[in-house]
Design a protein around this nucleic acid. Structure first.
Lengths: 191, 191
DNA sequence: CAGTTTCGAGACGATCATTCTCGAAACTCA
DNA sequence: TGAGTTTCGAGAATGATCGTCTCGAAACTG
């Protein structure tokens, strides 16, 4: 079937914008499909035609709406400590803004709420960013800046995990100083 | 008012058991108050009388129902690497069982869903366990097994965070070997 | 026993996800 | 141009669930 009205890009963007804004205003709990449709000036069917569920809309809105930093390779100044520090600092600052924290919490809620969303987010968000981090770490290992048997996947999960932990518990948001400490710890060890 | 029927301990336990079982069977999404009341053989009002919300019941059920390992201090064999390894391995095994994973996911969902639940869980679960870990680390530092300027809170959050990250993403459950790698990385560094 | 409080059961009203229907609009192709 | 197709906005209809409320029975105090 080639005939027929085409999908409205205007509506698509209005839906994602509305979802993101409502997410930031009231969190995942407050968010309703009716509210999204209302603010976007769109029929509910238009939402359900293109996204299968509320969780799917939320995931998409968050990914296109500011949580996902542009997926660019880590800087490579030649010094792995400088680069890791810069990377982790940037993420720390990003995730501790009201917007960043709200979005990551919303995504966590959506993940738990909808099993398929977990896979989508991993594939489109977590995995790609972790891969970029691993790439940079492998290069450092090749350049002799890390031990030849340095466990790159472990290092990546430690850097990401410590930040995630601090953000998710919602009790003591991490600072850029914390980021520096984590990088130094991972590279130098505590022993 | 001293008179009146007393709170039924039988019902209290039946509610927590039912909530935990349903959590493990269908996750946080499937869980309804009606289902808990039904399985526990209890009126809904009995639930709402003692817990303010679904999140509160879930938090309580999870804490009393098997997620919370007994809150015992870390072993102290005199060797910090041995003790950390033992601790992280135990948690890794605990959180990668079907039950452990189900519960941690449910708690994460509840945390993101309800801010008051986040505080309760941090206070009654996360914080106490992290404190035990810090205590052991401080003792190691005092004994000269860690650098005198070792950032104990950072070490704790790295150990916990890396495990949490791997469990939450649900893509590659951590193994005891991963646990050992994390401990070695934290103590020895990658540089 | 009289008074108080909880208990199990379930009705009730409100909210919300999701589906369905409608007439109008946008588009393809002959 | 016009027939056929698909999406559009709007909103009604359905079903699940939350949280409140009521009822008569049960358990407890003094």
């Amino acid at each position: 079937m080639t005939g027929g009205r085409r999908r409205s890009e205007t509506s698509r963007l209005a839906i994602l914008d509305a979802a993101r804004d409502l997410l930031l205003e009231g969190g995942y709990e407050q968010l309703t499909i009716d509210a999204i449709a209302g603010r976007a000036g769109v029929g509910k069917q238009t939402i359900y035609r293109w996204w299968g569920s509320k969780g799917a809309v939320v995931a998409d809105a968050a990914l296109e709406g500011g949580l996902a930093q542009p997926l660019t390779p880590l800087p490579d100044t030649g010094d792995i400590e400088t680069d890791l520090r810069r990377w982790l600092r940037a993420w720390t600052e990003h995730l501790t803004t009201a917007q960043g924290t709200g979005l990551i919490l919303a995504l966590t809620a959506a993940t738990a709420d909808d099993h398929t969303v977990a896979d989508v987010l991993f594939e489109r968000f977590t995995q790609p960013h972790e891969q970029l981090l691993r790439d940079r770490l492998e290069r450092a290992r090749g350049a002799g800046q890390l031990a030849s048997d340095a466990p790159v996947p472990t290092i990546a999960s430690v850097l990401i995990g410590s930040l995630l932990y601090r953000v998710l518990t919602r009790q003591a948001p991490p600072t850029v100083d914390d980021a520096d400490l984590v990088v130094r710890l991972v590279l130098g060890g505590a022993g």
